[in-house]
Structures are given as structure tokens and as C-alpha cells.
Amino acid sequence: MSGRTDSDAAPAISRAAQADEPEDHGERGDQGEPDAHDEPDASGEPGDHDDRYDRDEHVGEARRARWTAAGAGGLLCLAGCAAALLRLTGPAPAVVPAAYALGAAVCALAAVLGSRGRTRRALWLLVAGTAVMAVGDQFD
């Protein structure tokens, strides 16, 4: 092997990659079926499909997810704070109220992230905060 960098392998590779790509059908899908925007509406004109209703459904789902994440985070935060205060006044070791307080802080962070639309991260933080509270309760 001579190690030449200007060999003819690159054009052959690019032709093979182009052969694997589907043909361009304009505005139609991969199978040649018309797109949702190409279907005629009530006036009979293609391309006048109003997808405003599709967006409204997704906006409603996102809003519900944000409210759920924020509400669950706030509720778990309040429960963790209440449990930390109750355990602090009792004969429990100091690690128990600290674990409840830490779990409540994580759940509060989850509520903030959930209200900002980061619902997946908020879900994982809710799980982690609840697990911290549960592990802390085992020390009692």
C-alpha cells in the first residue's frame, strides 16, 4: 500500500451512499403518498390544511405535563419539609431529618424544572428526591 491520500475510493463511497438515499419526490413522503398539506380541504384547494388544531393538542399536553411535574414536586417538597420538622422534634437521629430536608430540596428543584418545561428531568429528580427521603427514613 502506498498510503496515497488522493485515491479514487472517496468518489466510489459517495456514489454508494447516494444510491442508498431515497429518491426525492418533491413534497410527497418516501412512499410517494401525498403529504397532509396536499390533501384538499373544504374549499377543494390542496395545501390549505390548517394544522392549528394539531398544535393546540400538543400545547395542551405540554401544559398538562408542566402542571403535573410542578404540582407533584411542590407536594413532595411540602411533605418532605413537614416530615423533616416532625422528625427534628422527635428522638430520631440527625441524619433522618437531614435526609427528608435534602429530598424536599431535590423535589423543589424538580418542581422548578417541571414548571419550565423540563418534565423528564423533573420526573427523575422527583424519583431521586423520594428515594433520598425513603433511605433517610430507614435510619430511624
Rank of each mutant, 00 (worst) to 15 (best):
S2R: 13
W67R: 08
G129V: 05
E61N: 12
V59M: 05
T89Y: 01
Q31D: 14
G80Y: 02
D6W: 06
A111S: 07
D24A: 03
G3V: 04
E21G: 05
Y53K: 00
A83C: 08
G73N: 02
V112S: 00
C107Y: 01
Q18R: 04
L102Q: 06
A122F: 06
P97M: 06
H37F: 03
D30R: 10
A111W: 06
E61C: 13
R121V: 15
P91Q: 11
A82S: 12
V135I: 14
P46E: 03
R52I: 15
Q31P: 04
D20W: 12
A79Q: 08
L86W: 10
Q18D: 06
L113S: 03
L76F: 11
S14C: 05
E61V: 15
A134I: 15
G80K: 00
A84H: 00
L102N: 02
D41P: 00
T119Q: 02
A94H: 05
R66W: 08
L75K: 04
R121H: 13
A19M: 14
A128H: 09
A131F: 10
E39M: 11
D38G: 07
M1G: 14
S7T: 15
A65C: 09
P11D: 02
P40T: 12
D56A: 13
L86V: 13
G73S: 01
L85N: 04
L126I: 15
A131P: 13
A82L: 15
G71H: 01
E23W: 08
T119W: 01
G60A: 08
T68D: 12
D50G: 06
V127K: 01
A19T: 08
V59F: 06
H25D: 05
R121W: 10
Y100P: 00
A92C: 09
R63M: 05
D51R: 04
Q138K: 07
P93C: 06
C77N: 09
A42C: 03
P91W: 11
L76A: 10
A128S: 11
G90P: 01
A84C: 05
A128P: 05
T119A: 07
L86R: 12
L88I: 08
W124Y: 09
P22D: 02
A19P: 02
R15Q: 12
E45M: 04
G74L: 03
L126A: 14
P40N: 12
R66E: 10
A84T: 10
V106F: 00
R66H: 06
R55H: 10
G71K: 00
R55G: 05
A110C: 06
V132C: 11
V132K: 02
C77E: 09
A72V: 15
E27S: 15
T5H: 01
L126G: 15
E21N: 10
G44K: 02
R64A: 14
A101G: 00
Y53P: 03
L123H: 03
R52F: 13
V127N: 00
G74K: 03
D24K: 06
A70F: 13
M133Q: 14
A134D: 06
R63I: 13
A69L: 08
W67D: 12
A12R: 12
G29C: 10
D38F: 07
F139M: 03
V96D: 01
P46T: 14
A134R: 07
L86H: 14
D56G: 08
D6S: 13
R4P: 04
T5A: 11
D8S: 10
R28S: 09
V112T: 14
D48N: 07
G60C: 03
V112D: 01
H25K: 04
Y100V: 11
A131M: 12
L113M: 04
R52T: 15
S2G: 09
S43V: 07
